[in-house]
Design a protein around this nucleic acid. Structure first.
Lengths: 175, 175
DNA sequence: GCATATATGTCAATATGACTGACATAAAAT
DNA sequence: ATTTTATGTCAGTCATATTGACATATATGC
């Protein structure tokens, strides 16, 4: 697109947006993220409401499901919330039988967290909606677009540590 | 880059994962959105906190700035919140001089909303951080990736009406 | 072994964002 | 003239999130 860098093959003067990253394009990106995230979270939120859970419960369930044996401090680090609010949300999930704790073996101060069967059921139900939405979007956009989406999203994620999660540990394994 | 569409120059069989949309890839997308949105909103949130405003104030300021003369019901429709909470947030913004109301001309029941100079100043400050983040990500990812990002995000946005906002009313004006 | 640091938990106070439900007013539409 | 629409407001409730203070158990360093 927009051939900056390529010196315009003899045509009339460039006239193509000299800045390229113009305000309109950047604002559209802001809005894509806003509307996208709004819609991306709407369905799980509706399910959660039926359980009298909130979005925070979803995130906790999601990451424990993704990383069984996750510690409390691991969750705090990912979610960037305070231990007080995590403690409450986690306490509710444990009390209602979605999550279990066990003591760490090498460090017995740690509480290792796992989903119960019930927890895996809810996790599946919640993320199924999101996976279906992504799958549809990916399918319609095509493989090349998906690569572009990943690149841009990785660029938006600020720190290297978080980016490192996406080194395709079990990714599409293409090539 | 990445020459799909060009039919693989005589190479060995495609062998590209038959399912392609596997669970791992979809979960990575979920996490890209989670981490991306988290980082995307972190800086504005920090600025807003200094004004004792919240994310809701940001969204209201953003969309009024984007669409001067926006009505209350227009905001309600975009933000998908109740009039009660909008009324409170909007009231605070008006009271503190960031937004002004004027009566609609064709329909005098309407309150048309605009940013004041002060409001534009704050809007600029808030979205500058986000635009800089996107600009960096776009620049690093390249134009083709940006197109892919847009395609996928549009796919994630559920309804046609919201998607229609992105018909490049003033987009890159390519071709 | 003692001191310190870390992992976790808990009590309290506070703010924001969001909801439902009920009701009110002004103006437009039929 | 009645009804509908655009907006606003009061009241109650809940989830998410904060800061600050303090407690306990366990590791770790010296």
């Amino acid at each position: 697109m927009t051939d900056i860098k390529s010196p315009l093959p003899g045509g009339p003067k460039p006239a193509v947006n000299p800045l390229f990253l113009r305000d309109e394009e950047l604002r559209q990106a802001i809005e894509l993220l806003f509307f996208g995230y709004r819609d991306f979270t709407a369905e799980p939120d509706a399910i959660l409401a039926r359980y009298r859970f909130g979005r925070a419960h979803h995130r906790v369930i999601y990451f424990i499901g993704r990383h069984p044996g996750m510690t409390v401090s691991g969750l705090l680090h990912i979610l960037r919330i305070t231990k007080q609010i995590l403690s409450r949300v986690l306490g509710q999930l444990i009390e209602r039988g979605y999550v279990v704790q066990r003591q760490g073996t090498s460090d017995r101060r740690q509480r290792l967290l796992d989903l119960t069967e019930k927890g895996r059921g809810l996790e599946e139900q919640l993320s199924a909606e999101q996976r279906a939405r992504i799958a549809r979007a990916y399918r319609e956009a095509g493989g090349e677009a998906v690569e572009g989406f990943r690149k841009v999203m990785l660029g938006i994620i600020g720190n290297e540590e978080d980016r490192a999660r996406f080194d395709r540990p079990a990714g599409p394994a293409r090539r």
